Amino acid sequence: MTGLTETAAKRRKQLLRFISTDLLGPIAGKMPKSCIESLEKASSYSDVNSHILDIVPVTEACIVKHEVAAKLPPFIRTEAVFGKKNLYLLRNATVSPHSGMAWIGNRILEESVGSLRRIMDWGDVLHEPLLPARELRIPEPVVICHPASYYHWLFEVLPNVLFAVATFPGVKIVLPENPPRYVLEGLNTALGPEAQRDFLFSAGPIRVERLVVPQYHTQPEFTSPQVLALLRSAVQAKVVPQGPGSKEPNRSGARIYVSRQKSRRRLAGEAELEARLREMGFAVLHCEALSFAEQVRAFHQAEVVVGCHGAGLSNLAWCEPPCRVVEIFPRNYILDCFAWLSFSHGFDYRHVICDTGHKIDERAMEAVIAAAG
């Protein structure tokens, strides 16, 4: 099979540009003009305002600065600004259960996923407004619980669903067909098994009379204190009961290593590191093999957590101080979201960068062992 001719390739490029323009509107600097950046800002326009039934603030804007004794490099940040978070109740809107992307008419709501850049980075969701939408004729409001990756689902999607449930009693939760295990288990943990009667499943976009659109922010790598507190009260407290009458055993002081050997982004040389840590009394956890509740309990018991940067470290949300965290970074991928999570809970945070990319070199291994001890 031969490749496309130059003429055919040019025609295909022109067709894709035409479809993108028809879908997203005129392009300026590769950014569609017809997307709605902020529903609050656009609410003065009659064609937008006619879709807005209510705008409900659920968290306040705040500035958070963590005082950390250790001297940190500039890429480990200790200060962040969080804008207020809204819930929008919209009339006659369409939404995808796979991405949470919502649109009114042919205008995509950036806040439904965080930003236009996130939509364009995902790539495979740009076509969703072109798909046929099924009419969902129910009187109750609807909120989408889309299956983002574990980190983004835990710190963005789940809290937004919890805010919607608390604000709009009777809201129906729409999921795609066959969502990941952690999505259903997390919802059942937070809302109780009886909440399943409010679950609806859809294979594609749906058009609803009343849609709750949570506001997602542009830069989701940091989590606000209000969201962390919500996860503690709505999730952790139901898995690890607190108080005098609790039957849950006290923290065991466990030392755990969060393995990525079963991940597609595994760390070369990890088996040797695991063997060294086992000799020091560490248990090796494969989070993908654990239920949602098992992950909550395991991290709640931990006093030392070591792991390569990855979704498993999202479970630091369930740890209690005092706790030491040692995060291993490949040289070509450093993101401080778990450092921020550690600072938010008052943990002793340390990090090690591998000199050899995605391989645990000897220097890095010794640094991890020293930090973990």
Rank of each mutant, 00 (worst) to 15 (best):
106 N>E: 14
175 L>D: 01
95 V>L: 03
297 R>D: 08
316 L>I: 03
268 A>G: 06
324 R>T: 10
308 C>I: 08
223 T>C: 09
46 S>V: 14
289 A>N: 12
29 G>Y: 13
28 A>K: 12
84 K>A: 14
87 L>I: 04
174 V>A: 04
192 G>N: 03
105 G>K: 09
200 L>D: 01
100 G>P: 00
65 K>H: 15
144 I>Y: 02
84 K>N: 11
214 P>R: 02
370 A>D: 08
352 V>H: 06
118 R>I: 14
42 A>N: 07
217 H>F: 11
31 M>E: 14
80 A>M: 07
292 F>S: 07
367 A>M: 06
102 A>T: 10
201 F>K: 12
190 A>M: 03
165 V>A: 02
66 H>M: 10
306 V>F: 05
141 P>H: 04
367 A>Q: 15
250 N>M: 13
6 E>Q: 09
141 P>I: 03
189 T>E: 09
99 S>R: 02
189 T>I: 10
37 E>P: 01
105 G>L: 14
267 L>Y: 13
122 W>Q: 11
82 F>H: 06
155 F>A: 02
69 A>S: 11
217 H>S: 05
207 R>A: 13
71 K>M: 08
6 E>N: 02
154 L>D: 00
22 D>H: 09
217 H>I: 15
76 I>Y: 14
181 R>D: 14
331 R>C: 04
164 A>N: 00
292 F>K: 06
195 A>M: 07
342 S>M: 04
125 V>Q: 08
244 P>V: 11
300 H>L: 02
161 V>S: 00
199 F>L: 01
349 Y>T: 01
289 A>D: 15
323 C>D: 09
99 S>L: 06
42 A>M: 09
226 Q>D: 15
226 Q>C: 07
361 D>Q: 06
137 R>Y: 01
24 L>A: 05
241 P>Y: 15
326 V>T: 06
321 P>G: 02
48 V>H: 05
96 S>L: 06
219 Q>G: 05
197 R>M: 05
198 D>G: 02
354 C>N: 11
141 P>N: 08
132 P>S: 09
261 Q>A: 14
91 R>L: 05
106 N>M: 08
33 K>E: 14
234 A>G: 00
56 V>G: 01
204 G>A: 12
333 Y>F: 13
48 V>P: 01
317 A>S: 02
203 A>Q: 12
330 P>S: 13
186 G>N: 06
81 V>L: 03
2 T>F: 12
116 L>G: 09
344 S>Q: 10
275 A>M: 12
343 F>C: 04
203 A>L: 06
271 A>F: 07
307 G>P: 02
294 E>R: 08
227 V>K: 03
312 G>K: 05
155 F>I: 07
327 E>C: 03
299 F>D: 04
